[in-house]
Design a protein around this nucleic acid. Structure first.
Lengths: 223, 223
DNA sequence: TATTAATGTTACAACTCTGTTACAAAGGTT
DNA sequence: AACCTTTGTAACAGAGTTGTAACATTAATA
């Protein structure tokens, strides 16, 4: 069993069933979504590649593709009903990696999935995903509950450092050294203030940033 | 498949074959060496544990063991042909972790391999495991019976110091020096108070922290 | 058993640590 | 220049922590 999860987005049950069968035979795990909104809700999960039909209820494939692209660097294969529709999409340059025209041979689709996964895998995505929190360092963006949040430069650097050391208790000194730089000699309590501001922006209870009394702070992903 | 690699050093092909079969069945990967020099050349590779015969061509097992010890902190199980040879080695205190006398039951050897791997592995990860008690120093967390317990900074430092010196009787002075710092000059009985508080949080009988009357305290793992 | 020494336990006041807010300086933008 | 955002420090309150002393209990010794 491979570790990659493929998300199939199609409103036709028979198509999903067909694709699931072929992909699972090839060793992939499969998630399904029947409409555009369901698809976007799956993106928070650990998905490696998306197969996306253009014709979808609620939110069409183009919109879903754009939305995914804004937040993730994830391979997308779009399924189009007719060849001329595919051309149109090419022209729009939505950002999908492949376009496949229905009807298609499942084996051919699986081959493209393999190729895309192989190509993408070695690349470090620069994405840190924690439940409803996403730190996209490539884009320098932080998403919370599917909404972009606005952080000051220091807040961003601090969050990035914490998130990159998930589960590790860090002293104020470590944090100051890594985020402010080794040549910075300021008050240790400065860290506290920034932690407070970060917690505020990360919302209510903020389960992510834990206090380690007598030591410093620790970032925790979801359980 | 486990990730640990076991190195078997023995000049008898049949012994290597036998051990390989049992260890692979237990999920370990196996490397082989037929003489002492070949053994030392394998040490550069990512080996987790060595099973080492005493009688070897080119460089005998004792020399190999010493050489490994000079460079690595790696579990070593020595195989000796007769019991009296084993005694001799015990006396020499070469530094092996276990001595097994031929002929041996392969299952017993595999059990020792498992035990040693389990014991050594957490050290590198900052984890101290004692039955139902786990001290995770990276996260600065203490788990008891699968539940997180809340310790004050001093309690944590004290527990960590004790746990890192499992089985060793420590005087109040030693504890004060190591946990409170060499520049601290307070009442020795302060240690007692903190021990009490720790025992309370570690639950009822608290078999972990033993009193050594007239001396101090000793941390004990499970039997 | 009586005595003594050592350890366990509890209470509490002093202290430390953290969250928070306020504020002024610094830096950038219009 | 006026404005806004960001940033570091200081101050304060409240919660949590800590060391000591006093008393209780246990173990060793005579």
């Amino acid at each position: 069993m491979r570790s990659e999860v493929i998300l199939i987005v199609d409103d036709e049950f028979r198509i999903r069933k067909l694709l699931r069968a072929y992909l699972q035979k090839a060793g992939y795990r499969v998630e399904e979504a029947a409409d555009g909104e369901a698809a976007l809700q799956c993106i928070g999960k650990d998905i490696s590649l998306v197969i996306l039909d253009v014709m979808l209820p609620k939110l069409d494939g183009w919109a879903v593709c754009r939305e995914i692209r804004r937040r993730h660097d994830m391979p997308i294969i779009m399924l189009t009903a007719r060849a001329d529709e595919a051309d149109e999409i090419h022209g729009l340059d939505i950002g999908a990696d492949e376009y496949v025209t229905k009807p298609f041979r499942p084996q051919a689709l699986v081959a493209r999935v393999k190729a895309l996964i192989r190509r993408v895998k070695p690349v470090s995505t620069g994405l840190l995903n924690f439940g409803n929190l996403l730190v996209n360092d490539r884009a320098h963006e932080v998403w919370l509950e599917n909404g972009l949040i606005d952080l000051s430069p220091k807040e961003y650097d601090l969050l990035l450092y914490l998130a990159r050391n998930t589960g590790i208790a860090l002293t104020r000194e470590q944090i100051l050294n890594e985020v402010w730089g080794y040549d910075y000699f300021g008050d240790l309590r400065t860290v506290d203030t920034h932690i407070t501001r970060l917690r505020l922006k990360l919302g209510g209870e903020c389960k992510y940033i834990q206090t380690v009394r007598g030591l410093g702070y620790r970032f925790e992903g979801p359980p």
